[in-house]
Simulated assay, not measured.
Amino acid sequence: MKKATIATVYSASNADTVGNANRIKRYQILASHYNLIIFTNHPEFIKSKVNAKVVAVKKWKIPFLSVYLFWLKIGIALLFTKYDLLFLVISDAPISFFNFKSPFLCHIQSAHSILGLNEKRSKSFLSKKISLLYLNGVKKADHSLAISKQLVDYFVSRKVDEDKISYLPHGVDFNKFKLADQCENINRDDKFRLIYTGWVCEIRGLNLMLEGLKELVSEKKDIQLLIIGAEEIYQKKIKNWSLENKIQDNIKVIGRIDHDEIPGYINESNVCLSFLEDIPSYHLSPPQKLFEYFAMGKPVVANDLPTHSQYIKDGFNGYIIKDLDVNLFKDAIYKLYNQKERLGKMSKKIREDASQYDVQKVELELLSKVEELICRQN
């Protein structure tokens, strides 16, 4: 029987960010069951990751216009491409306006493109008009899959048909993200390590982590902080800060690395960190790293937002701190530091509880919806 063909898009400023790893996994799943065509501005990167037909689309660096020209080029290409399903993430949803012949499945991993990450910018007249482009793109979808129930509720409140949107959580590769005693080359020294992975910036708790570390190290010299994913400007900033505060031996900063390397670093750590500024968009989208931490049996310290607190149970798989406050951060870390001997037992329970996010289970739901839409079309 002939395989159906799915058309999709991979666009990114930087191809290899940790945050894009989940998108790549989705494409790998689709490519293993269907003929997949990927339009992208990172063709060589995609060819190295996904077994699919890759179509290179140049993304010009023209302020403001680049993304719209990119959409236009792909939209025109779609008019001359034969496919059975269009699969897009929300940040490329406006491309669906060029889709006149096949079902459209939208994957919603955040509402950043609609709500923005800057309050003033998100309230501007132009930003509101641009937001409508993304929202109307979602409304054109035959179905949308959102990574949180908060996102489902938000889009239903924005007049997306509730029968055309459903919850599909983040998926984690449990064969890659596994317990420390199942991995090789684990650091067995006596350091107590904290780790943060992902986008490094002020609205992701950078200042809290640095100031908190300074306070912790003043009392416990064996505590270290590992930050992974920092752009060069933040690598320099953190290095200079650590030298000024004379704690350079207690902090290590690494830039962007391949997502496959992340588990090794998490395994060397005792406690994982996730912090988000209290802005509307972050109330809707749980970070992917949260579930990767859990899959590896690690307790997580995070601040009190719905996208953290609904997953973290105090004393079971981490601690929630009410505010981005240094003293609250210290208290949470000390609670885990003082029960180091229990962390091994906690790990197995944390991983077991996180099994619902195993990508193999999520994959079945994704493929079921894809097949339903393709069959409906036929």
Score class of each variant (00 low, 15 high):
Leu284Ala: 00
Lys220Trp: 02
Lys82Cys: 07
Phe125Asn: 14
Ala77Val: 09
Asp304Cys: 10
Tyr357Trp: 15
Leu273Tyr: 12
Leu336Arg: 00
Ile247Tyr: 03
Lys176His: 13
Leu284Gln: 03
Ser166Trp: 00
Ile29Thr: 07
Ile320Pro: 12
Asn175Ser: 15
Ala295Asp: 02
Ser102Ala: 15
Ile37Asn: 02
Gln150Arg: 12
Thr81Gly: 10
Phe192Cys: 01
Ser269Gln: 08
Ser347Cys: 08
Glu232Leu: 09
Ile238Tyr: 08
Glu268Ser: 14
Glu292His: 05
Ala180Ser: 12
Lys236Ile: 11
Trp71Arg: 14
Lys345Met: 06
Val300His: 11
Leu30Gly: 01
Gln182Leu: 13
Ile279Lys: 06
Lys61Ala: 11
Phe316Met: 14
Ala230Glu: 07
Phe39Glu: 09
Cys201Gly: 13
Ile238Pro: 06
Ser110Arg: 02
Gly198Cys: 08
His112Phe: 13
Val55Asn: 09
Ile203His: 11
Ile147Cys: 06
Asp331Cys: 07
Asp92Glu: 15
Thr81Ser: 11
Asn99Asp: 10
Leu78Asp: 03
Asp190Ala: 10
Gln360Met: 11
Asp325Thr: 12
Tyr234Asp: 14
Gly19Tyr: 04
Glu363Trp: 09
Leu226Ile: 14
Ala180Pro: 04
Gln182Ile: 00
Val54Met: 06
Pro287Asp: 04
Val172Tyr: 01
Asp181Arg: 03
Ala31Asn: 01
Gly198Gln: 03
Gln377Ser: 15
Lys348Thr: 11
Trp199Ile: 10
His259Phe: 15
Leu145Val: 04
Cys183Pro: 00
Lys214Ile: 05
Cys183Asp: 04
Asp249Tyr: 12
Asp314Ile: 09
Ile238Cys: 06
Glu219Trp: 00
Asp314Trp: 07
Lys214Trp: 00
Asp323Trp: 07
Lys221Gln: 13
Leu79Ile: 12
Arg256Ser: 09
Asp84Gly: 06
Ser113Ile: 11
Met1Cys: 05
Arg342Asn: 13
Lys252Leu: 11
Asn41Arg: 02
Ser274Lys: 08
Pro63Lys: 09
His42Gln: 07
Tyr10Ala: 06
Leu132Cys: 10
Phe294Pro: 03
Trp60Thr: 11
Ala77Thr: 11
Lys139Tyr: 05
Tyr196Lys: 04
Lys73Leu: 12
